[in-house]
């Protein structure tokens, strides 16, 4: 299932957060959004997972306008890891993952064996089955992120939206999380801070600056010294990764403003 944003504009408090944004995530592709702080990455994603309604333009999910779908319908097609995953109550990991089934359930009606099987499989896929009985609040950052990915997988979506999924994780967990996301075989749209991780994990990248797309294409096409200098204000050298060949950036000093 593909995702397409056509001329999406978001205006809040008289300020344009994103302007005429066009973006397409082909079915099964992993697409990354990169850009400096405040460039509109999260705003774009929030339009896709419906936390925010665009002032203009459309967000299409498999060809349908997401805002024309019921929340339940869109939740069956699309799962998201948002930035506001602060949990107030002492849920177990199993309970958190089970919440992924809620778009598929009616008002009442218990979890079926099938639900439990789906949740267990999701936990196995992220290597967290041994955490099932643990309290979510006692987990480390890396474990939490894996569990939240399991919750998203338990939703059985076609599309996965991730807002900075590697935030606050050490390098091993960052790589693990992105590998899991790639392995899921879903259509993925992710905002990523780390350009080198983005280059290694994504099929295509969109570079945002001040709410506009300034470059898009494969990582090789997009992550050039010129783009990095213009958008991030940093001088950088691009080298090929010794084994994968993905472009990797080595940074010099920030450029004078």
């Amino acid at each position: 299932m593909d995702v397409e944003l056509t001329d999406v504009t978001v205006t809040a408090a008289g300020r344009r957060l994103i302007s005429d944004l066009r973006l397409r995530v082909p079915s099964g592709a992993v697409v990354g959004l990169v850009g400096p702080n405040g460039s509109g990455k999260s705003t774009t994603l929030r339009c896709v997972y419906r936390a925010l309604r665009p002032s203009a333009g459309r967000v299409l999910l498999g060809g349908d306008d997401v805002f024309a779908l019921s929340l339940r319908d869109s939740a069956r097609r699309l799962a998201a890891l948002t930035q506001d995953s602060h949990v107030e109550f002492d849920f177990t990991v199993a309970e958190v993952v089970t919440m992924g089934r809620s778009p598929h359930k009616g008002l009442v009606g218990p979890d079926t064996d099938q639900d439990r099987e789906i949740c267990a499989e999701a936990l196995r896929r992220v290597g967290a089955a041994h955490l099932a009985a643990r309290s979510f609040l006692t987990l480390s950052g890396g474990e939490r992120q894996r569990v939240l990915i399991a919750r998203a997988l338990a939703q059985r979506p076609a599309v996965l939206v991730l807002d900075e999924p590697t935030n606050h994780l050490d390098i091993r967990h960052q790589l693990e999380v992105l590998a899991l996301v790639r392995q899921a075989g879903l259509t993925v749209l992710a905002a990523l801070h780390d350009l080198n991780l983005a280059a290694a994990a994504c099929d295509r990248l969109y570079v945002l600056a001040e709410g506009r797309v300034v470059a898009s294409g494969t990582p090789e096409e997009v992550l050039t010294p010129e783009v990095v200098a213009e958008v991030f204000g940093v001088r950088a050298h691009v080298v090929a990764h010794p084994t994968s060949g993905a472009p990797q950036l080595i940074f010099d000093a920030p450029l004078p403003r």
Binding site: Y49, L71, R72, D73, A75, A79, Q83, V161
Partner: peptide, 9 residues
């Protein structure tokens, strides 16, 4: 969380 709730329908 409100945003996560929305993604859960």
């Amino acid at each position: 969380g409100d945003e996560t709730a929305a993604t859960l329908g």
